[in-house]
Design a protein around this nucleic acid. Structure first.
Length: 670
DNA sequence: CAGTGAGCGAGCTTCCGCTTGACTT
């Protein structure tokens, strides 16, 4: 019997189908060995020796692997072809006790040819790559398990810090500060609606926008300037000074990775990363899509040719690009252990309804399918026209696009297409235009937007921080820790998040530096190549870090978390005539272990406290007596409930409508 | 379904990355 070890049980099933009875395929379901949860587990005094222990949840899995390994004639360690996969392979090799020496095999796509070829070209476990993983693991443990207890001591119990989560919080805190510091600038957008006077041509009007005054970029900053420009434009003559026409070709988007899929589903369906990943997991388990935790844009050749065939058959030859399209990942930290996310069978879309029982699955599958098929279709072609108009000292311009050939846009519009560009008439240089109306509108520059799930994932990915398997969990962690909260889908830092972030940025700036992970990755690459040893790399990090830890532990003051005042007096001591006015307490909102609560500003001198409820000014739709209030689940997700709970059991994820009046409040997007 | 904050000081909290359930309420 031949035994093959992989990570995912779905992958095990697929391989089993390819390979038949001669092979038994077992899945580890991730790491089977790890550092202990309840202690540091790294001997910093002795070359950072890790104290690996069996992962409790994997006891059953490990038992079966050990048993089957004993009677196997050949053992293939076919865990994922990346750093973590190499470590899992090594750990499996370590726990099994067999006569035959296991071999390592790797494949980057789950096709029969790739798998058979891998089995024919085995190698030994790559101990350099394994050391790189070890270095990554130990560094993350040291950062997390040293900084977190420091926070327990200096801020509050139960807090956490880490190489990834602390940067995610930092991004959100710094964005909030940019927004606070932002000063909106007034500006005026000026345009003129015109139409051609040539009766033989199209007579529909179009709008030209002001771009230059004399030879400088037009900047109209206030009402006076705007009025003066409008006055000039009212009496000006409009003549076309230039008409530029060129063909613009637009390439399709690359196929999905975890990050872009999460962004797409967030934008189009309003889904959280967690929801998208869980729907994708089901699709993967049903064999409908390739693996969904991936940073790779690679596509199996078979799949690309199948897509080309499908496109030709369904849309015609014109829609098939001359050459197949292959995509390259830009990210330097990408591990590319898997393919991009694609349907396993492009022909499947017609029958998908019978296979995917739920609507979410259907929606996500269709999106993945379209994105993939589109990525193997011909470019979309547009006639891009730019018309420049002179009116006295003013230059105005209109640009428009007319689609000549839709190409890949036939299947993947993605909701953001060129349709909003205006249609421009056929005109020529020298044509005189008739002014219909001068348009001017006051506008203000906008602050940078708050992060949402999609944009924080995109930013982390760009910085090379975090992995496809951790984006969604990281977003949960920083909310559960109450560092950030989601308000209508956008992240805001809490007072706790700001306090913790400032503490870390001040005392450990290099750990939360956006370049820290990039530097680490570079060292890990060096270890994997054999240019560096992992222990010296660790030492180089640990020596200054541990010194800093000691210093901060000794000298740093306890951090005060800011409180928000409600504007009310404390009901207990706020009006006590026996207390000096200046010492009377105010109501403040504090952030405790179980969320927000009301308390007195004079705590601990006054111990008044009360529940904090966030009302939304709508009566309860069920009992009509209570108010709808915003509540939080244990996991930190907001929902709407009735203030009379438990007398009234009303609860809803979506914001209830006020039946008293017309309301079109948007449904909350989790 | 109350509890939350500080400090007193038992014993506890915590990382990232790999995987899948069990389950949210």
């Amino acid at each position: 019997m031949n035994l093959i070890i992989v990570e995912s049980p779905t992958k095990a099933k697929t391989l089993g189908r390819f390979l038949g009875k001669d092979y038994e395929v077992l899945a580890t379901m991730g790491h089977v060995v790890d550092l202990p949860k309840s202690k540091l587990g790294v001997d910093v005094e002795h070359d950072f020796t890790p104290d690996y222990v069996a992962v409790a949840k994997k006891n059953d899995v490990a038992k079966i692997i050990k048993k089957e390994a004993k009677r196997a004639d050949k053992i293939y360690l076919a865990t994922d072809p990346d750093r973590e996969g190499e470590a899992i392979a090594k750990h499996v090799a370590d726990i099994i006790d067999t006569k035959v020496k296991p071999v390592r095999v790797v494949f980057h796509e789950i096709t029969e040819s790739a798998v058979r070829h891998a089995l024919d070209t085995p190698r030994d476990i790559d101990l350099k790559l394994y050391d790189a993983q070890q270095a990554r693991r130990v560094l993350d443990r040291l950062v997390g398990y040293k900084l977190s207890p420091l926070l327990w001591k200096k801020v509050r119990r139960g807090l956490s810090a880490g190489r990834v989560q602390s940067v995610a919080v930092r991004l959100i805190v710094e964005r909030e500060r940019e927004i606070e510091a932002f000063v909106a600038q007034e500006f005026w957008e000026i345009g003129v609606e015109v139409k051609t006077q040539n009766v033989e041509r199209k007579t529909e009007s179009f709008v030209v926008g002001l771009v230059r005054i004399e030879d400088t970029k037009a900047e109209v900053k206030n009402k006076e300037q705007a009025e003066s420009v409008v006055q000039d434009l009212e009496k000006a003559e409009y003549k076309i000074s230039e008409v530029k026409k060129r063909e613009v070709r637009k390439h399709p988007y690359p196929p999905f990775t975890t990050s872009t899929m999460a962004q797409g589903a967030a934008r189009l369906f309003g889904w959280s990363a967690r929801r998208t990943m869980s729907v994708a997991q089901k699709l993967y388990e049903e064999g409908l899509i390739t693996y969904h935790r991936t940073d790779s844009l690679n596509l199996a050749q078979e799949a690309v040719f199948a897509a080309r065939g499908y496109v030709e058959k369904s849309y015609g030859k014109d829609y098939v690009p001359e050459k197949p399209r292959f995509y390259k990942t830009k990210s330097r930290v990408a591990q590319e252990a898997h393919e991009a996310i694609r349907p396993t069978d492009v022909g499947e879309i017609a029958t998908r309804d019978s296979q995917i029982a739920n609507q979410d699955g259907e929606k996500l599958y269709e999106l993945i399918w379209k994105r993939f098929v589109a990525c193997q279709m011909a470019e979309a072609r547009f006639d891009a026209t730019s018309i420049e108009v002179r009116a006295d000292k003013y230059t105005l311009r209109a640009s428009g696009e007319v689609m000549k050939f839709e190409g890949w846009r036939k299947v993947y519009g993605g909701g953001q297409n060129a349709e909003d560009a205006q249609l421009l008439p056929e005109v020529e240089r020298g044509d005189v235009l008739e002014k219909i109306k001068v348009l001017s509108e006051q506008k203000f520059t906008q602050p940078p937007p708050r992060f949402n799930e999609a944009s924080i994932i995109k930013t982390l990915e760009k910085l090379g921080i975090g992995r496809p398997s951790t984006y969604a969990p990281t977003i949960s962690t920083i909310q559960v820790r109450q560092y950030v909260e989601k308000d209508e889908g956008k992240f805001r830092p809490t007072s706790l998040g700001i306090a913790v972030n400032d503490f870390i940025v001040h005392n450990f700036p290099d750990i939360v530096d956006y370049q820290f992970t990039a530097g680490m990755e570079e060292s890990l690459d060096g270890i994997a190549r054999g240019d560096k040893e992992w222990v010296p790399v660790m030492r180089e990090f640990w020596d200054p870090f541990s010194k800093k830890l000691e210093g901060v532990e000794e000298t740093a003051e306890r951090v005060k978390v800011a409180v928000e005042e409600t504007g009310e007096k404390c009901p207990k001591c706020g009006e006590d005539p026996n207390v000096a006015r200046a010492l009377r307490g105010k109501q403040v909102i504090r952030l405790g272990r179980f969320g927000k609560f009301l308390s007195c500003s004079r705590f601990p001198d006054c111990d008044w406290k009360d529940k904090y409820v966030e009302k939304i000014d709508i009566p309860c739709p069920d009992c009509k007596e209570g108010d709808v209030i915003i509540k939080k689940t244990k996991r930190g997700k907001s929902f709407y409930g009735c203030s009379r709970y438990p007398d009234c059991k009303f609860a809803s994820w979506k914001k209830p409508k006020d039946e008293g009046e017309e309301s079109n409040s948007a449904a909350s997007t989790e």
